[in-house]
């Protein structure tokens, strides 16, 4: 009889609890729309800045710069967006919400998956908004609709993986301001040392070597190829290895941190 609590309802409860917690996570953005507004305005500003100010000076052979830039900006959107996962969890820890959830007969996994899934939905929403803005600025997904959807799916999955890194950070720092800073500080250099804004072969050798293997670069290269309709090469499987590697490692680490977080 001991430990026999995975009742027949087990899976049903995991699903219903996850849905309830995801809904709760999404309401956070509905009630604090500023979180969404800033995470949309910032990439739009970047889009304008790079497309109209720096873009002219950046050589992107075979592509106009806006078509080069948009896939990268979308990846940047989900990376920065994923920081909110850790901020939200740290907030829950600090405000005692996690204690409340732990005392309930709910599926424990739902606290973490609810949050990361809510941020996945949020990322998809912001991506679609960005695609619309980019369309107005002259972006064309020349690879066709199907490849565009595939690319968006890949970016969303990449953001989901980063949400788990962010979750592990949020659960270990336990303070929402710190989670905000700790979440951004390490992704910032990674974002710039990648193929998001410029082709990496213009970088100094050492930086290029780093940027080449960065998960951001291989993912950006994949989704760029998908969107503009060029050959995808080896990037897609390298990106998937990164995505699933991050997902597995950091979801396990987060669960560990969550168990210990008191």
């Amino acid at each position: 009889m001991a430990q026999g609590h995975i009742a027949p309802q087990g899976l049903k409860w995991v699903i219903s609890d996850t849905i309830a917690m995801t809904w709760r996570g999404l309401l956070r953005y509905v009630r604090m729309p500023q979180l969404l507004i800033f995470s949309t305005i910032q990439p739009i500003l970047f889009l304008l800045l790079f497309a109209y100010v720096f873009g002219g000076a950046i050589q992107t052979p075979g592509l106009n710069y806006i078509n080069f830039l948009v896939p990268g900006i979308l990846v940047q959107v989900v990376i920065f967006g994923s920081v909110q996962t850790g901020v939200g969890l740290a907030e829950d820890l600090g405000k005692g919400m996690i204690d409340r959830f732990r005392s309930l007969p709910m599926a424990r996994s739902a606290v973490l998956t609810g949050r990361t899934l809510a941020d996945l939905v949020r990322n998809i929403f912001v991506m679609i908004l960005m695609i619309a803005v980019a369309g107005i600025m002259g972006f064309r997904a020349e690879g066709g609709f199907f490849r565009l959807v595939l690319a968006l799916g890949m970016i969303a999955l990449f953001g989901f993986a980063f949400s788990w890194i962010s979750a592990a950070i949020g659960l270990s720092v336990r303070n929402s301001e710190t989670a905000q800073v700790a979440g951004f500080i390490w992704v910032f250099p990674l974002v710039f040392a990648s193929s998001i804004f410029v082709p990496i072969d213009t970088m100094p050798g050492w930086l290029e070597a780093f940027a080449k293997i960065s998960p951001i670069t291989v993912t950006v290269n994949s989704v760029r190829a998908l969107m503009v309709g060029t050959p995808i090469g080896d990037n897609w499987w390298q990106s998937l290895i990164w995505i699933f590697g991050i997902l597995i490692d950091f979801s396990m680490l987060s669960v560990l941190q969550y168990r210990r977080a008191r």
Binding site: A20, R24, L27, R31, K95
Partner: peptide, 24 residues
């Protein structure tokens, strides 16, 4: 608990209903 654990972004009703849902 000692420090009121309510989700600040939810309404009073939503807070209660969330907890109720999590009691299945």
């Amino acid at each position: 608990g000692q420090f009121a654990a309510v989700d600040e972004n939810l309404t009073g009703k939503e807070n209660l209903e969330l907890v109720g849902t999590l009691y299945h």
